[in-house]
Protein backbone atom coordinates (compact mmCIF):
# COMPACT_ATOMS: atom_id res chain seq x y z
CA UNK A 1 0.00 0.00 0.00
CA UNK A 2 1.23 3.50 -0.75
CA UNK A 3 1.74 6.23 1.78
CA UNK A 4 -1.26 8.22 3.10
CA UNK A 5 -2.52 11.25 1.17
CA UNK A 6 -1.96 13.56 4.12
CA UNK A 7 -0.06 12.84 7.29
CA UNK A 8 0.01 15.41 10.10
CA UNK A 9 2.08 15.03 13.24
CA UNK A 10 1.78 17.29 16.29
CA UNK A 11 0.75 20.26 14.22
CA UNK A 12 0.67 23.56 16.14
CA UNK A 13 -0.36 27.02 15.00
CA UNK A 14 -0.16 30.04 17.26
CA UNK A 15 -1.20 33.49 16.13
CA UNK A 16 0.20 36.68 17.58
CA UNK A 17 2.80 36.41 20.28
CA UNK A 18 6.22 37.97 19.96
CA UNK A 19 6.92 41.43 21.22
CA UNK A 20 5.61 44.75 20.04
CA UNK A 21 7.78 47.76 19.25
CA UNK A 22 7.94 48.81 22.89
CA UNK A 23 8.73 45.38 24.27
CA UNK A 24 5.28 44.41 25.48
CA UNK A 25 4.44 40.79 24.87
CA UNK A 26 1.49 40.54 22.46
CA UNK A 27 -1.28 38.12 23.38
CA UNK A 28 -1.16 34.70 21.75
CA UNK A 29 -4.00 32.72 20.26
CA UNK A 30 -3.51 28.98 20.13
CA UNK A 31 -5.59 28.11 17.08
CA UNK A 32 -4.30 24.56 16.63
CA UNK A 33 -2.62 22.71 19.47
CA UNK A 34 -0.80 19.57 18.54
CA UNK A 35 -2.96 17.78 15.98
CA UNK A 36 -2.01 14.41 14.49
CA UNK A 37 -4.26 13.08 11.74
CA UNK A 38 -3.89 11.00 8.63
CA UNK A 39 -5.99 11.05 5.49
CA UNK A 40 -5.76 7.80 3.49
CA UNK A 41 -5.99 7.78 -0.28
CA UNK A 42 -9.53 7.71 -1.58
CA UNK A 43 -10.85 8.39 1.87
CA UNK A 44 -13.10 11.20 3.10
CA UNK A 45 -12.13 12.48 6.49
CA UNK A 46 -14.76 14.70 8.08
CA UNK A 47 -13.69 17.38 10.53
CA UNK A 48 -16.41 18.64 12.85
CA UNK A 49 -16.11 21.53 15.23
CA UNK A 50 -17.71 24.77 16.28
CA UNK A 51 -16.46 28.25 15.44
CA UNK A 52 -13.05 28.88 16.98
CA UNK A 53 -12.14 25.21 17.10
CA UNK A 54 -9.28 25.75 14.65
CA UNK A 55 -10.64 23.70 11.78
CA UNK A 56 -10.24 26.42 9.15
CA UNK A 57 -6.71 27.21 10.35
CA UNK A 58 -5.88 23.54 9.95
CA UNK A 59 -7.22 23.58 6.40
CA UNK A 60 -5.34 26.74 5.47
CA UNK A 61 -2.09 25.23 6.76
CA UNK A 62 -2.64 22.12 4.67
CA UNK A 63 -2.82 24.06 1.42
CA UNK A 64 0.07 26.34 2.32
CA UNK A 65 -1.87 29.54 3.01
CA UNK A 66 -0.60 29.55 6.62
CA UNK A 67 2.71 28.36 8.05
CA UNK A 68 2.57 25.95 10.98
CA UNK A 69 4.31 27.10 14.17
CA UNK A 70 5.63 23.63 14.80
CA UNK A 71 4.97 20.02 13.90
CA UNK A 72 5.26 18.24 10.59
CA UNK A 73 3.03 17.47 7.62
CA UNK A 74 3.51 15.34 4.58
CA UNK A 75 1.32 15.53 1.49
CA UNK A 76 1.48 12.44 -0.70
CA UNK A 77 4.74 11.55 1.03
CA UNK A 78 6.39 14.91 0.37
CA UNK A 79 7.26 16.93 3.47
CA UNK A 80 5.35 20.18 3.82
CA UNK A 81 8.48 22.29 4.20
CA UNK A 82 9.81 20.96 0.90
CA UNK A 83 6.57 21.92 -0.85
CA UNK A 84 6.57 25.34 0.84
CA UNK A 85 10.08 26.14 -0.32
CA UNK A 86 9.19 25.29 -3.91
CA UNK A 87 6.29 27.77 -3.87
CA UNK A 88 2.53 27.72 -4.14
CA UNK A 89 2.55 25.86 -7.44
CA UNK A 90 3.87 22.72 -5.81
CA UNK A 91 1.01 22.88 -3.35
CA UNK A 92 -1.54 23.61 -6.01
CA UNK A 93 -0.64 20.46 -7.93
CA UNK A 94 -0.89 18.25 -4.87
CA UNK A 95 -3.81 19.67 -2.91
CA UNK A 96 -6.64 22.08 -3.64
CA UNK A 97 -9.03 24.06 -1.49
CA UNK A 98 -12.75 24.80 -1.85
CA UNK A 99 -13.91 27.85 0.06
CA UNK A 100 -17.00 28.31 2.16
CA UNK A 101 -18.39 31.32 0.33
CA UNK A 102 -18.35 30.37 -3.36
CA UNK A 103 -19.26 33.83 -4.61
CA UNK A 104 -16.46 35.52 -2.64
CA UNK A 105 -13.92 33.02 -3.92
CA UNK A 106 -14.51 33.99 -7.56
CA UNK A 107 -13.08 37.30 -8.78
CA UNK A 108 -16.13 39.40 -9.75
CA UNK A 109 -14.31 40.98 -12.71
CA UNK A 110 -13.28 37.78 -14.48
CA UNK A 111 -15.28 35.38 -16.56
CA UNK A 112 -15.51 31.76 -15.46
CA UNK A 113 -13.38 30.85 -18.47
CA UNK A 114 -10.58 33.17 -17.29
CA UNK A 115 -10.83 31.80 -13.76
CA UNK A 116 -10.56 28.18 -14.89
CA UNK A 117 -7.77 29.04 -17.30
CA UNK A 118 -5.29 30.01 -14.58
CA UNK A 119 -4.72 26.64 -12.90
CA UNK A 120 -4.68 24.88 -16.28
CA UNK A 121 -2.01 27.22 -17.56
CA UNK A 122 0.12 27.63 -14.45
CA UNK A 123 -0.27 24.29 -12.68
CA UNK A 124 -0.79 21.88 -15.57
CA UNK A 125 1.09 23.82 -18.25
CA UNK A 126 -1.35 22.90 -21.01
CA UNK A 127 -1.36 24.67 -24.37
CA UNK A 128 -4.29 26.74 -25.58
CA UNK A 129 -6.22 23.99 -27.37
CA UNK A 130 -5.85 21.53 -24.56
CA UNK A 131 -6.96 24.18 -22.05
CA UNK A 132 -10.08 24.95 -24.07
CA UNK A 133 -10.95 21.25 -24.23
CA UNK A 134 -10.24 20.71 -20.58
CA UNK A 135 -12.39 23.69 -19.55
CA UNK A 136 -15.35 22.18 -21.37
CA UNK A 137 -14.76 18.86 -19.66
CA UNK A 138 -14.60 20.52 -16.25
CA UNK A 139 -17.80 22.48 -16.74
CA UNK A 140 -19.40 19.26 -17.86
CA UNK A 141 -18.07 17.34 -14.87
CA UNK A 142 -19.74 19.71 -12.42
CA UNK A 143 -22.97 19.55 -14.44
CA UNK A 144 -23.08 23.15 -15.59
CA UNK A 145 -24.21 24.38 -19.04
CA UNK A 146 -21.48 25.05 -21.61
CA UNK A 147 -22.11 28.80 -21.88
CA UNK A 148 -20.91 29.03 -18.27
CA UNK A 149 -17.42 29.85 -19.47
CA UNK A 150 -18.35 33.22 -20.99
CA UNK A 151 -20.31 34.41 -17.97
CA UNK A 152 -19.35 36.35 -14.83
CA UNK A 153 -19.60 35.05 -11.25
CA UNK A 154 -22.48 37.35 -10.23
CA UNK A 155 -24.71 35.72 -12.84
CA UNK A 156 -24.77 32.47 -10.86
CA UNK A 157 -26.63 31.38 -7.73
CA UNK A 158 -24.76 30.14 -4.67
CA UNK A 159 -25.06 26.49 -5.64
CA UNK A 160 -23.89 27.09 -9.20
CA UNK A 161 -20.99 29.22 -7.97
CA UNK A 162 -19.94 26.40 -5.66
CA UNK A 163 -19.95 23.99 -8.60
CA UNK A 164 -17.68 26.39 -10.47
CA UNK A 165 -15.38 26.63 -7.44
CA UNK A 166 -15.23 22.83 -7.36
CA UNK A 167 -14.41 22.83 -11.07
CA UNK A 168 -11.52 25.18 -10.41
CA UNK A 169 -10.22 22.91 -7.67
CA UNK A 170 -10.48 19.95 -10.04
CA UNK A 171 -8.69 21.84 -12.81
CA UNK A 172 -5.37 21.57 -10.99
CA UNK A 173 -5.67 17.80 -11.17
CA UNK A 174 -4.74 17.54 -7.51
CA UNK A 175 -5.72 14.27 -5.88
CA UNK A 176 -6.60 15.81 -2.53
CA UNK A 177 -9.31 18.38 -1.94
CA UNK A 178 -9.75 20.36 1.26
CA UNK A 179 -13.41 21.36 1.44
CA UNK A 180 -13.97 24.09 4.01
CA UNK A 181 -17.69 24.27 4.81
CA UNK A 182 -18.52 23.77 1.12
CA UNK A 183 -22.28 23.49 1.61
CA UNK A 184 -22.91 25.70 4.66
CA UNK A 185 -23.95 28.74 2.66
CA UNK A 186 -26.38 26.76 0.48
CA UNK A 187 -30.08 25.92 0.73
CA UNK A 188 -30.88 22.34 1.72
CA UNK A 189 -31.90 21.09 -1.71
CA UNK A 190 -28.84 22.67 -3.32
CA UNK A 191 -26.73 21.30 -0.47
CA UNK A 192 -27.89 17.78 -1.24
CA UNK A 193 -27.08 18.25 -4.93
CA UNK A 194 -23.56 19.51 -4.21
CA UNK A 195 -22.97 16.61 -1.79
CA UNK A 196 -24.06 14.17 -4.48
CA UNK A 197 -21.72 15.82 -6.96
CA UNK A 198 -18.82 15.62 -4.52
CA UNK A 199 -19.49 11.96 -3.86
CA UNK A 200 -19.69 11.18 -7.56
CA UNK A 201 -16.48 13.05 -8.38
CA UNK A 202 -14.64 11.31 -5.56
CA UNK A 203 -15.67 7.89 -6.80
CA UNK A 204 -14.96 8.63 -10.45
CA UNK A 205 -11.65 10.43 -10.02
CA UNK A 206 -10.35 8.64 -6.94
CA UNK A 207 -10.03 11.83 -4.90
CA UNK A 208 -9.33 12.13 -1.18
CA UNK A 209 -11.39 14.69 0.74
CA UNK A 210 -10.80 16.55 3.93
CA UNK A 211 -14.37 17.70 4.56
CA UNK A 212 -14.81 20.43 7.15
CA UNK A 213 -18.24 21.34 8.47
CA UNK A 214 -20.10 22.32 11.60
CA UNK A 215 -23.13 20.28 10.50
CA UNK A 216 -22.90 16.78 11.94
CA UNK A 217 -25.48 15.22 9.66
CA UNK A 218 -23.81 16.58 6.52
CA UNK A 219 -20.41 15.31 7.64
CA UNK A 220 -21.83 11.93 8.49
CA UNK A 221 -23.49 11.58 5.09
CA UNK A 222 -20.25 11.86 3.11
CA UNK A 223 -17.39 10.91 5.44
CA UNK A 224 -15.71 7.57 6.06
CA UNK A 225 -14.00 8.75 9.20
CA UNK A 226 -14.71 11.78 11.37
CA UNK A 227 -12.47 13.84 13.67
CA UNK A 228 -14.09 16.08 16.27
CA UNK A 229 -12.18 19.29 17.02
CA UNK A 230 -12.58 21.35 20.16
CA UNK A 231 -10.46 24.40 21.07
CA UNK A 232 -7.67 23.50 18.68
CA UNK A 233 -7.42 19.82 19.59
CA UNK A 234 -8.85 16.66 18.14
CA UNK A 235 -10.87 15.13 20.96
CA UNK A 236 -12.09 12.08 19.14
CA UNK A 237 -11.66 10.28 15.83
CA UNK A 238 -13.38 7.23 14.48
CA UNK A 239 -15.43 5.75 11.66
CA UNK A 240 -18.41 7.99 10.96
CA UNK A 241 -21.08 5.45 11.89
CA UNK A 242 -19.41 4.41 15.13
CA UNK A 243 -18.60 7.95 16.23
CA UNK A 244 -22.15 9.23 15.97
CA UNK A 245 -23.75 6.08 17.33
CA UNK A 246 -21.45 5.68 20.33
CA UNK A 247 -19.58 8.91 21.07
CA UNK A 248 -16.79 8.52 23.61
CA UNK A 249 -15.93 12.09 24.46
CA UNK A 250 -18.22 14.41 26.46
CA UNK A 251 -17.93 17.19 23.90
CA UNK A 252 -18.97 14.91 21.05
CA UNK A 253 -21.99 13.86 23.10
CA UNK A 254 -22.90 17.50 23.77
CA UNK A 255 -22.57 18.28 20.07
CA UNK A 256 -24.81 15.39 19.07
CA UNK A 257 -27.39 16.25 21.74
CA UNK A 258 -27.58 19.86 20.52
CA UNK A 259 -28.07 19.04 16.86
CA UNK A 260 -31.61 19.88 15.78
CA UNK A 261 -33.61 16.86 14.61
CA UNK A 262 -36.69 16.48 12.51
CA UNK A 263 -38.34 13.94 14.78
CA UNK A 264 -40.46 15.71 17.35
CA UNK A 265 -41.60 12.67 19.27
CA UNK A 266 -38.92 12.85 22.00
CA UNK A 267 -40.12 15.94 23.79
CA UNK A 268 -43.73 17.07 23.67
CA UNK A 269 -43.90 20.81 22.95
Amino acid sequence: MSQPAVDMQNLVKTFGGGRSLFGRAASEVHAVRGISLTLQRGETLGIVGESGSGKSTLARMLVGLEHPTSGSMAIEGKPWSELASSGTRAFGRAIQYVFQDPVASLNPRKTIGDILDVPLRLLCGYDRDRRARRKQELVDAVQMPLDTLERYPHEFSGGQAQRIAIARALAAEARILVLDEPVSALDVSVQAQVLLLLQQLRDELGLSYLFISHDLAVVESISDRVAVMYLGEVVETGPAARLFAAPQHDYTRALIASAPRLTVSDSPP
Binding site: V188, S189, Q191, A192
Partner: peptide, 28 residues
Protein backbone atom coordinates in the same frame (compact mmCIF):
# COMPACT_ATOMS: atom_id res chain seq x y z
CA UNK B 1 -41.79 16.73 0.53
CA UNK B 2 -38.73 17.48 -1.48
CA UNK B 3 -37.43 20.00 1.02
CA UNK B 4 -37.82 17.62 3.94
CA UNK B 5 -36.26 14.79 1.99
CA UNK B 6 -33.16 16.90 1.42
CA UNK B 7 -32.45 17.36 5.12
CA UNK B 8 -29.84 14.84 6.27
CA UNK B 9 -30.69 13.16 9.58
CA UNK B 10 -28.06 12.41 12.14
CA UNK B 11 -27.46 8.68 12.26
CA UNK B 12 -28.45 8.19 8.65
CA UNK B 13 -24.89 8.17 7.36
CA UNK B 14 -24.19 7.33 3.73
CA UNK B 15 -27.77 6.20 3.26
CA UNK B 16 -28.76 9.86 2.98
CA UNK B 17 -27.04 10.39 -0.36
CA UNK B 18 -28.50 7.18 -1.76
CA UNK B 19 -31.92 8.32 -0.63
CA UNK B 20 -31.77 11.78 -2.25
CA UNK B 21 -30.10 10.72 -5.48
CA UNK B 22 -33.36 9.69 -7.22
CA UNK B 23 -34.90 13.10 -6.39
CA UNK B 24 -32.44 14.93 -8.59
CA UNK B 25 -32.18 12.33 -11.31
CA UNK B 26 -35.88 12.81 -12.02
CA UNK B 27 -35.57 16.56 -12.38
CA UNK B 28 -32.56 16.44 -14.67
Amino acid sequence: KRLIACVPELGEGHAFLDRVRPLFEETR
